[in-house]
Design a protein around this nucleic acid. Sequence first.
DNA 1: CTTGAATCGGGCAGGATGCTCAACGGCGCG
DNA 2: CGCGCCGTTGAGCATCCTGCCCGATTCAAG
Lengths: 159, 159
Amino acid sequence: MTSVNQLDDLDARILLALDENPDATVLHLAQTLGVARNTVHARLRRMTEGGALGSFSKRVAPAALGYPLVAFVWIAISQASDSAAMASLGEIPEIVEMHATTGDADLLAKVVARDPQHLHSLTSRMLRIEGVERTSTALSLVEAMPHRVRGLLEGVAGR
Amino acid sequence: MTSVNQLDDLDARILLALDENPDATVLHLAQTLGVARNTVHARLRRMTEGGALGSFSKRVAPAALGYPLVAFVWIAISQASDSAAMASLGEIPEIVEMHATTGDADLLAKVVARDPQHLHSLTSRMLRIEGVERTSTALSLVEAMPHRVRGLLEGVAGR
DNA sequence: CTTGAATCGGGCAGGATGCTCAACGGCGCG
DNA sequence: CGCGCCGTTGAGCATCCTGCCCGATTCAAG
């Protein structure tokens, strides 16, 4: 997420209103927020095109697709095979997020799986990728706080 | 995300179509997918109410709200203060996700921040919470793979 | 001051909505 | 097997909304 357009308070208020009611019409948002219809429309387009508003599928819960198990996998990469390993890891759809991080390993992957055996087969698959030297897995026992950005939105909206 | 309704292939195809075009009307989805309008409507309502389709704000990129920095913070909790510490951590809006995990620490938090100084003040704030014994931070250098579930959706949709 | 971008209010031609209804088909159960 | 339940279907109603366009105004930057 490099160089995303920064949202102002009206942008944030629009998104908050949509968080409350995702089916709200542009016209209703405009009336509720006290701005012109065109303005809401232009703002939404800008947020979508500018990357601030991501893809619809970000709303989908992997557990509903049959992947109730979440794990965090630290992956150590050998430097020579960096990009090829990344591409191979990208072919595993169960890796739903990945960051190159500071710390002991090179990558931290958020992985979903059907069950523990499936998770094990996924980490084995990762280890077979050329360039992947080591993995270390921490299992999520409870999703203590599901992904949320509402508090951040409220801050920008001035609440 | 406990006991989420499982999605079938039509659910997944609806979500894929919406991923392609989030503004698609129910009528257009119905025509495209070859089902009745009411069916799409009923499916969407069920996915929303059943938890499979999460809140709109999950689409919002924290970087666009002024939080470009991502970090993963391992938090060790003393057992006596478990729920009070959790509640206090929940009051920090920059903690955008948190899991109770296996491994060395008790919690893994995904934290966003304005800059390194801000991150430091956040971890200091966490350490001041009664029950939080220790934190260990890994900084995300690059979001190598932004959050994605499209591949999982395609699997369920039968592609 | 000039310029460009954003907002505003209005409008056009066409389209969509939430909800209701009755009928039908498939499935599970006794 | 018969029955009940649930989901899907197609149709319709009254109401509302859309993408896009336009000219005028406002605001910020040079």
